[in-house]
Design a protein around this nucleic acid. Sequence first.
DNA 1: AGTCACCTGATT
DNA 2: AATCAGGTGACT
Length: 274
Amino acid sequence: MPELPEVEAIRRRLARQITGRRIRAAHVLRAGTVEARPVGFARLVTGRTIEEVERRGKNLLIGLSGNYTLRVHLRMTGELLAGEDAREAFEAEEPVKSVRVWFELGGGCELVFKDFRGLGRISAATCSEMEQALAPLGPEPLGRRFREDDFVAQARRSRQPAKLFLMDQTHVAGLGNIYVAEALFHAGIDPRRPMQTVSAPRLRSLHSAIRTVLRKAVRSATLLYKRPGTYRQSDVFGRRVYGREGEPCRVCGREVRRIPQGGRSTYFCPHCQR
DNA sequence: AGTCACCTGATT
DNA sequence: AATCAGGTGACT
């Protein structure tokens, strides 16, 4: 489900709920979800205190005492819920099918990783191991290290179609199918066009479009996550092209098209994006 | 660079 | 029965 803005919204909510709490126990209900043997995983995290909740790209990073980090990647349908949210999630499901990992925290608080498709992943490692694992990720698009010249230079070297270039987390971290489509529309770039052939001015406008689109989405996702679960990203954000196949482009009125790229759907306006 | 597998469910 | 779904990594 989530791309950077949703993960950021989840992070903010979670930080308030679980920071400072101790992990009293961890239960792995589906072995495939953790990247370790379940017992080993539980042993690694139990007894540690949650010091912070951070985000890198689409990864949630839960900083634990003793220089440990818990990494949660929600993939398509993962949810990480704490406190009230966790309790509700548990109670709403009888029998419990989609809860994959369950943590008992101090003060009777719970932390639940739910994921009906089971593609999400959780891992635990020392901080330095985790840094290594995350090293391939490109810069945070909303951070200072996402520099326009670097982005343009990298783009000019790539023959990848624009859509695939942006989906590749090593160039920029945190974009997914929706926000790539929206950013490319904003910048007026055809998603099929090899990055190399996009003009420098357009690449600069893409750099800025990525930030604008994401900033706006973070704001809206953060507001909507006051009630997690009820949230459907597609209802929310003022999408220009994503999911609008056959509907009129909001700028030129022509039909928005959908094409397959990299095994997934790309939405764009062939008139506005060249 | 492209395709597929990983899972489950909703929709056509 | 087939296709689609906001992601990623492992294959050819």
